[in-house]
Amino acid sequence: MTGRTLRVAALYPERLNIYADRGNLLVLQRRCAWRGIAMELVPVSLGDRLDPDAHDLLYLGGGQDRDQRLCAEDLVATKRDAVHAHAARGGAILAVCGGYQLLGHRYALGPDEALPGVGLLDVSTDRGDARLIGNVAIEVRLPRPGGDGAPMEPRVLAGFENHGGRTVLGPDQQPLGRVLEGHGNTGTSGHEGARSGNVVGTYLHGPLLPKNAWFADWLVAAALDVDPDALGPLDDTLEDGAHRSARRAAGLPAG
């Protein structure tokens, strides 16, 4: 893959970073470097213009209430159209926790207050009584990037969730995956996250990509529109161990 460039924009990295989101970006950076793929990482902050054609992958993390509120207003006011245009031309998005909520229609914090969302995923979130916290494992079936999008073998994503929001999917919205262990979107629906094409929203942090290196590669492949196998092999002995460790923590066999 030498000679390719992965262009990544991190949205509000100084505010939406509460669950060690920089770990996700670091994993993308290192894995690209080891494969000879140049990675360009630009921060896009409050008030900045988002260029809909300039990035292969957008990253949105989670934040504390006050930061999430500021970012929600800014995202809707200044970046909504660009986020939609980016997704419409096949650009990839990974949105974790608070970022996932902002990709939906709205996040109702209480009877009188709701944060607006950009409506890219057909989901709506309401704050629940208790936080849903713990290790989590889900089964996902993703389309194979770089070809006809045929489904790949089912795989497991393992991580940690900690969210007050209960996220409900619209009738035609598919989840990211099926809950094997943990709470997922609502604690009862059996669904976790949401995915439309290359746009992924999830509550899984931990952070997600260091525990699921295969998914980091899927994301890079989807963003570059190439087959994941074309990225070339890496020695993932330690990464595979970390994946097994996160699965065990969630209560799954190491697999």
Binding site: G23, L26, V27, R30, P210, K211, D235, T237, L238, E239, G241, A242, R244, S245, A246, A249
Partner: peptide
């Protein structure tokens, strides 16, 4: 520790060779 492998991956991505 109970999450030894995840500690190891953290050091690897910090820049320590395998």
């Amino acid at each position: 520790g109970t999450r030894a492998e995840e500690m190891a991956v953290r050091w690897k991505y910090a820049g320590v060779p395998d």
